[in-house]
Design a protein around this nucleic acid. Structure first.
Lengths: 211, 211
DNA sequence: CCTATTTCATAACGGTCGATACGATTTATC
DNA sequence: GATAAATCGTATCGACCGTTATGAAATAGG
């Protein structure tokens, strides 16, 4: 994860200041990677989308790899926010339902590319981008792990039956979300995607005391 | 679809014959696209994997795009075979269970790349590969459509309740399969993937007369 | 104002991309 | 053997890749 020191309110470095909005440029880069993927987005694509020349990109973000990683963090959001969202949900099922619904909306936004950046940007790539693929996989694994933790909590509190497998359920939820990304890219409309999401929840286990 | 005229038993063209096994080379190309994707596989990668020089690839397969499409057809298999498999299954649920299990095995083969070629090879790409992405999406849509047809049959014969949505169920199955590809690429082992598959089947609807 | 520091725009680097021109070589047909 | 047709290996095409050298321009601290 890339973390920012928010404590210091812009120390203002010496020298010529940036002539562009770094965050806005990062946002444009994120959208470009989202639409066209990591390796299949060229620096030329990025300069066009960001409105920034190549040397400026390199001074402001490092190289293409670091720019992507930063864009990915912007896309994925803070893991703490996910954790908080999981913790605040009444049940793991509610949290999962929210995640699936949010994904259906996010993957079919009219002002954003289709699908999920994490699912598509590094779904394939050459050998020398293996580290980037691993970084994306790590984000996914983190999501699975936190989801598993939330499900475990419901099992411990008897909200879910002891027979439920938190590991399997967490993996299945992420699989459905990443699969929804594929369908969204194929052109499936939002309503259909929402139905897929709720359909996937049909198999969610229920405690004996509830059913 | 690319179809072959099997009726003619090798008409033997005039001129110098191919010095390599075209089918074996295509197989190697398929594995390379499977592992590294369409745009992120270079002609140089293909010549190395296929053991064939670039000009020979172009004379034998056309260009990179047509080579990929042919490799994709080799990977996907004949739609008729899928249809036959669907028709021969006792129930749509059985057919889906077979598909999910087969996917779990295929995505974690020890002698093949991880995941699904259809899911990863064109998950993202530049604008000028939009037609290739569409070709892959068409294969997926064909699978969804045939799956829907099989589910509709079970609804018509009361094997599945009338309340079931064949369209949604078919889309969910494909979503799970494509999502399993992502998890397989992330390194999830076969056993876990099989559990995800059976977990996804938990929500499969049952007719009143059966339940 | 002067110096240090940083970013700016322009231009270009070596490398690789997908794709071919070319002439030699191998086959089928005559 | 002669001719036509197809593939062979070699060498290379122009375009684009990610990246950077260069010097002018803009800011901060003294």
């Amino acid at each position: 994860m890339i973390t920012m020191d928010i404590a210091t309110p812009t120390p203002r470095k010496p020298g010529r200041p940036l002539s562009f909005d770094r965050q806005a440029a990062l946002q444009r880069a994120m959208l470009t990677f989202w639409r066209h993927g990591y390796e299949t987005t060229s620096i030329s694509d990025l300069t066009a989308a960001m409105g920034v020349t190549a040397p400026s990109i390199y001074t402001a973000f490092g190289d293409k790899k670091r720019l992507f990683l930063e864009a990915m963090c912007l896309y994925a959001g803070s893991p703490d926010d996910l954790q908080q969202s999981l913790d605040q949900a009444a049940t793991a099922r509610d949290a999962v339902s929210d995640m699936l619904t949010s994904a259906a909306y996010a993957f079919t936004g009219e002002t954003t590319p289709r699908g999920c950046l994490l699912a598509s940007a590094t779904a394939s790539g050459s050998t020398d981008s293996a580290d980037v693929q691993k970084a994306v996989a790590d984000v996914r694994r983190d999501i699975v792990a936190r989801l598993k933790g939330r499900i475990d909590r419901d099992i411990a509190t008897k909200v879910l039956p002891e027979t439920a497998s938190a590991t399997t359920l967490a993996a299945m939820v992420v699989a459905v979300i990443q699969g929804m990304s594929v369908l969204a890219r194929d052109g499936l409309e939002r309503e259909s995607l929402l139905k897929v999401a709720s359909c996937a929840l049909e198999g969610w286990p229920v405690s004996q005391t509830e059913g």
